[in-house]
Design a protein around this nucleic acid. Structure first.
Lengths: 188, 188
DNA sequence: GCCACCCGAATGAACGTTCAATAGATACCT
DNA sequence: AGGTATCTATTGAACGTTCATTCGGGTGGC
């Protein structure tokens, strides 16, 4: 659906921003890496700013798509939580570019310019899940949105630790971490 | 101890980076806000890069100094944890510039250039505290460094949520959050 | 022949950094 | 005390580079 070159531009920007940061990735380099001319970028994007804004939407879409694959309904709530937590963590580990781009983006002046729908897009799935847990009386009494933010933050942090290479978490440690988060959100 | 103008330059950079990001804060603006000439910055810092690197050390130092004030030894481990968690959270809320600068910094290409001592400086206090909890058999069996990273991430996330203004957490919510994190690190 | 797509050299603004010049402070000699 | 040399602190205009963006033109499909 999405034009070949447009995708190449988005992917190149993603990689370059991870390596060189927002500043430090000139459009000329994006063009070179994407295999297009500098002018071509402006055929698809109005400016560097809109390129970056669209890149955020693009990553949100990627995440949502990846998460829907890993869903299964034939397990109890706790198992479901573990599966979701670990799946997300694995996604970020397999897509470090996305992880680092998002972290930079949400802490930059770009983020506040996003519409609500956009910045909550990939969180909605978690929020719905939390609501379900509330209805069944399994989870603590805390605003689902706040809870989802805390959970998401734990996922990204765990993925970053692993990618840093200082710990190189194995399956055991991921389960341990998921268990910790589980104990922090469930009623004791 | 630290020269008047040098401090003014650091503080100005901190504020500007929070508002405009790394890019988007030219040296000319830093100079203007600090009330010095452009050239003066280069008397104290070799380049923009070293200014930013030193700014990170500066924030780490601020945090450490602020935390030492809030310490008291006459309480049990659990109360101590709550005090520390909430104190740090409050520090970030009272110093949003520091919070947003650090978040941007640690996810940028600058961070990997830091020495270990620098990026662990402000964490050491937490790590020591966790070790104590391990010795007393209160905390779960998990690498203290990993634990401290997860805790710190929860603190920053909570502070950011509050500063976003979407939730405006009251004391009750902070205690709730601290309780959640407590339940995630202690042996059940 | 039109339109969407694509090119890449050219443009002009913005930026980090330099530097010659100035002022102030400190030290040293007479 | 006066004079002079030395060093640090400071200035802001000027420099050279880099970068986002533009534009005139080219190509191929319909």
């Amino acid at each position: 659906m999405i034009a070949e070159k447009k995708k190449a531009i988005l992917e190149s920007t993603l990689k370059l921003i991870k390596e060189n940061g927002f500043h430090g990735t000139p459009m000329s380099q994006v063009a070179k890496k994407a295999g297009v001319a500098a002018g071509t970028i402006y055929h698809y994007f109005d400016s560097k700013d809109t390129l970056i804004m669209e890149l955020f939407s693009y990553t949100q879409y990627m995440i949502q798509a990846a998460m829907q694959e890993s869903l299964r309904e034939d397990m109890d709530f706790r198992e479901n939580f573990f599966l979701r937590w670990i799946s997300r963590c694995q996604f970020y580990i397999q897509n470090p570019d996305v992880l680092f781009f998002i972290e930079q983006f949400v802490n930059s002046p770009y983020f506040p310019r996003c519409s609500k729908e956009q910045n909550e897009f990939s969180q909605n799935e978690i929020i719905q899940f939390i609501r379900l847990g509330h209805q069944n009386g399994i989870l603590r009494d805390l605003d689902p949105k706040l809870m989802s933010i805390m959970i998401h933050s734990s996922i990204m942090t765990a993925a970053k630790v692993h990618l840093d290479g200082k710990f190189s978490l194995a399956e055991k440690e991921f389960k341990q971490l998921a268990q910790m988060i589980w104990d922090s959100i469930r009623k004791l």
